[in-house]
Design a protein around this nucleic acid. Structure first.
Lengths: 329, 329
DNA sequence: CTGAAAGCGCTTACAG
DNA sequence: CTGAAAGCGCTTACAG
């Protein structure tokens, strides 16, 4: 592959001059410029970003750490990031922990070794070693989905979202409202959404039977299983159930249908996340639309700010959500 | 950030020696090694991949060009790629054309300028300038989804897949089978699947009314619209319809239901792609499972072969598909 | 077992 | 307007 040296020789100028025409910087006579451009055209010369970034200390690449690569959440997030980053000439270097938390630290180091200009972490479970690693990283950084103190964060108000949904269900006339959550180590989805549910129930003076609160994992089967547990072991059957993800809700719906009950007549169901599935399943699922694409755009914006030199101790950007009324309630 | 020079000074050895211990190459006394490791630990030194790859000409990154970033197809493909690439220590640099064909060439150059060790192109529409660009690239390269002569390709037998589905529908007793396709410029999805449909109909001595063959784009609304056109303008109504993607099929289902007809009693529907939606929609959609994840794994394998020095003129890897029988037929 | 030196392909003060 | 030279942070023959 051609290098700047060859171009310089062919065009009978110095490497300095070639560099100037490539980067459109400094003075170059029309004459010289023309010759250089000509040679570049002929040879199909493409400058090495690698060598360039070794000098300039900028790579124009942003590292992204994802917990799972092929989920709707991840792909919408990446879409949002790409939307604003691509315009500014940044490339995305993708990294996938596959839910193995130790890999987050590994990838943080890897991204640093590649001199990315910034990092976006789509976080699930936060622990101290991770926080320590981030703090000593010294690279523009934005977390998404979970709050980490002292950093730039793009978040949803998970607690309030959960409350809003419960209140909505209550307003629709339901009183026995059950809940399918996930591990509370996941502070946003596990802890906060559960807390929102519990507090909203209390504020509405509604009782919660123990068996109404189930804990699953992030898939459809788990929702099915939780619903079954609930129906098998509850003294009073719930008349509505709120799940913290659409997949869990859809699993619950499957069980309810199989049990010969109807939705929402016998049991109403609500999800969270506005997955594509929620729209096409029947009955269509009432859910909460957390715009992950907007999260991506916001996160990219915050990152760009930092890259351009803005300094702050902590910055929190809350992204709005929207309740989508459909026919499952 | 610390550099190899500082580590060398602190450990009282040469940069050469530090490099040896980092890369576990050549002879280093236990003594020296220990000192170096110690200093690395203390300083949190992370070697610059950038500088390294400038010397070694290897970056350990693979560029991926996607037509759309947040589709099931793309995310499954990337999952498959990541599955094998990550093990070998490769990172993925993602690039998204957003269906703008000119961007493919732009990104090809960009990836070259970043000295990626290989490129995977998820292609849609192939034209000569693109082929020319690829040929002068001189980087390990694999195309996915479309055949390009002279390259490594990972493909499905779209023609046969389409035929298989038609034959399946015929065996179920349907004779008036309609078709919803896409632009034939997309050779795999547009041209070959249509050709398979047409030929299978002919081989079964079944007539095809003009209005039964509709052309849409890749979304649900388009499927709805095509189905409406078909119903509005056909003399004899079809008793079954095959769509080249699940989304088109689901759109068609929506129209059929809205028209007060039942699936499959009045009109049977088949899709292609085994999207997650197809499983949960009702009735569940009979479709073809093209395993994109396997395509990803195969493509990564072919790329690795090339990176490791294997040379061939052309190599085609066909990935199997599977017909999923459900209740829409 | 160890290190001095050259070189990877760029950019950037600096001097002219 | 132009170019010689230093330097970015590594690796790698080569010599010892």
């Amino acid at each position: 592959m051609a290098t700047i040296k060859e171009i310089a020789e062919r065009a009978k100028v110095s490497r300095t001059t070639v560099s100037r025409v490539i980067n459109n910087s400094g003075y170059v006579s029309e004459e010289a410029k023309k010759r250089v451009l000509q040679v570049i055209e002929e040879t199909g010369y493409i400058p090495s970003e690698n060598a360039k970034s070794l000098r300039t200390k900028k790579t124009k690449v942003i590292g992204v750490i994802l917990p799972k690569i092929s989920t709707e959440t991840s792909s919408r997030l990446v879409k949002g990031l790409d939307h604003v980053l691509a315009k500014e000439g940044y490339q995305i270097l993708l990294t996938n922990t596959n839910l193995e938390t130790e890999k987050e630290i590994e990838y943080l180091r890897l991204l640093k070794s590649r001199h990315v200009d910034g990092i976006i972490l789509s976080a699930t479970i936060i622990n101290q070693p991770l926080i320590d690693e981030i703090n000593q990283l010294n690279i523009p950084f934005v977390t998404v989905g979970q709050y980490i103190s002292g950093l730039a964060n793009v978040l949803f108000d998970d607690y309030q979202a959960s409350k809003d949904m419960v209140n909505y269900i209550v307003n629709k006339g339901y009183k026995q409202i059950a809940f399918i959550g996930v591990d509370e180590k996941d502070r946003s989805v596990g802890y906060l959404r559960k807390a929102g549910y519990l507090d909203a129930m209390k504020e509405n003076h509604l009782l919660v039977e123990d068996s109404w609160v189930q804990k699953g994992i992030f898939d459809v089967e788990s929702g099915y299983h939780c619903m079954k547990q609930m129906m098998d072991f509850s003294k009073q059957k719930p008349s509505a159930v709120l799940a913290v993800t659409d997949r869990l809700a859809i699993g619950a719906m499957q069980y309810i249908k199989e049990a010969g009950l109807s939705i929402p007549a016998d049991i109403a169901v609500a999800g969270m996340g506005a997955s594509e599935l929620s729209k096409f399943i029947s009955p269509a699922l009432t859910t909460l639309d957390f715009s992950m694409e907007e999260v991506g755009r916001e996160a990219a914006g915050l990152l760009l700010e930092q890259i351009n030199g803005e300094i702050y101790h902590e910055k929190i950007k809350m992204v709005k959500y929207r309740l989508i009324e459909r026919s499952s309630i």
